[in-house]
Computed example of a mutant assay.
Amino acid sequence: MPTAGQAVRTMGRRPIAAWRTHLHGIAQVALSANPWTGLLFLAALFADDWRLGVYGVLGTLVSTGAAAALRTDWDGRLSQGLEGYCGCLVGIATLVRLGASGRTALLVVLAAAVCSILTAAAVRLLGPLGLPVLTAPYCLVAAVMAIAPPSNAAATPASATAHAAATGPSMADLGHAFCDNIGQVFFLEKWYAGLIVLVGLLVSSRRAAVAAACGSAVAVLTARAIGLPADRIAEGLYGYNAVLVAIALAATFLAPTPWTAGYAVLAAVASVPLTTAWTAVVQPSGGSPFTWPFVVTTWLFLAAAPAMDRPGMPYEKAK
C-alpha cells in the first residue's frame, strides 16, 4: 500500500496534470501542445479583456470534462489538449456575440459539451480519410450560436459590421494588421495581445512562430493586392485564417522543405479571398466565417498533398 506521503504527492500531481491538460487545450487552438504556450495564450486573452480569459477557460474546462466523461481519450487525445480547443473558441465566440451574462455562461457550457460530441464524430469520420479535425466542431457550433440566439448589439464582433475605407493603410495600420491577424484567432482586438500569442508560439516552436508571422504578412499583402478595405485589414479580419493555414501546413502536418513552404504560402494566399467570400455569404444572416476558411483550405491542400510528387509529401499523421 502507498504511504501517506506518497498518497499526498499523488493527489498533488493530479490537479497539476489536469491544469496542464487544460493549458494544452488552449494551446491547441494554434496547433500546439505546449502548456507554456497555453499559459501565454491565456495571458493574451486576459490582456485583451479579462472576460475573454474567463469564458475561454470555461469552454476549455467543459469540453475537456465532457470528453473525459464520455471516455473519448483514445490515443491520449485528452492529455494532448485535442478535446479542449474547440470548447475554448466556442466560449470566446459566444461571449463576443452575446456579451457576458448568466445566460451566456449557460450557453457556453451547453455548446462546449456539444463540441466534444462533434469532435468524437469528426475523428471517426475524418480518420479514414487521413484528415485532421481542426476547428470544424467549433465552427459548426459557433455558426448555430451566432444565428439562433438574439445578439447583444453592443457585443457584436467587428467582423459582423460593414466597413469602408477610402484611403490606403498607414504603416501603423499595417503593423496593427500584422499583429491583429494573429490575435484574431482568439477574437483579440488589441495589437499587443496578438504579439503575446506570437511569443506563445515561439515558446512552443520557432517553426510555428515563423509560419504564423509569414502567414500574417502574406495575408496583409494579399488583402491589399485585391483591394480589400484598409480598416478591416488593420483589424485582422482577413488574415487570421491565413495564420492558422500557415501553421498547419508549414509547421504541423508537412515536413519542412522549400517546396512545402511555398505550398503553405499558396494556401495562405488562397484563404484570404475565401475568407472574404465566406463573410459576404454569412453576413446577411448575422453569421461569421469563423475559421471555416482555415478548415476548408487546410483540408483541400492536405488532401492534394499525396498527389504532389515532392519532398515533404505525404503529410504527417492528422490530429
Rank of each mutant, 00 (worst) to 15 (best):
G194L: 03
K190W: 07
S204V: 12
M171H: 14
D173S: 09
G175E: 03
S204F: 14
I182P: 13
F178V: 08
R207M: 08
V203H: 08
M171E: 10
A193G: 10
F186C: 01
A193D: 05
N181L: 03
S204K: 10
V199M: 10
C179P: 00
L201C: 14
G183E: 01
L202R: 06
F178G: 04
D180H: 10
L201R: 14
F186W: 09
W191V: 11
D173V: 07
S204G: 15
G194F: 01
Y192L: 05
H176L: 02
I196N: 04
S204M: 12
D180P: 09
L188G: 13
A177I: 12
I196D: 05
M171V: 15
A172Y: 14
I196S: 03
S205P: 08
L198G: 08
L195K: 09
P169Y: 00
P169A: 12
S170M: 01
A193P: 04
A172E: 13
S205I: 04
M171L: 15
L174T: 01
F178M: 09
N181W: 06
S204R: 12
V185T: 11
G168Q: 14
V199D: 05
I196Y: 11
W191H: 11
V199P: 07
V197I: 15
V185K: 01
L174G: 00
L201N: 11
F187C: 03
Y192N: 08
T167V: 10
L198I: 13
T167I: 08
D180A: 11
H176G: 06
I182Y: 06
D173I: 09
F187Y: 13
I196C: 04
V203E: 03
S205D: 03
I196F: 06
S170V: 03
V197E: 10
L202G: 06
D173H: 07
D173Y: 07
V185P: 06
L198R: 11
M171R: 15
Q184E: 13
A177W: 13
G194Q: 03
C179G: 02
T167S: 06
H176Q: 07
K190P: 00
V203Y: 08
Q184M: 12
F178L: 12
S205L: 04
F187V: 07
G175H: 04
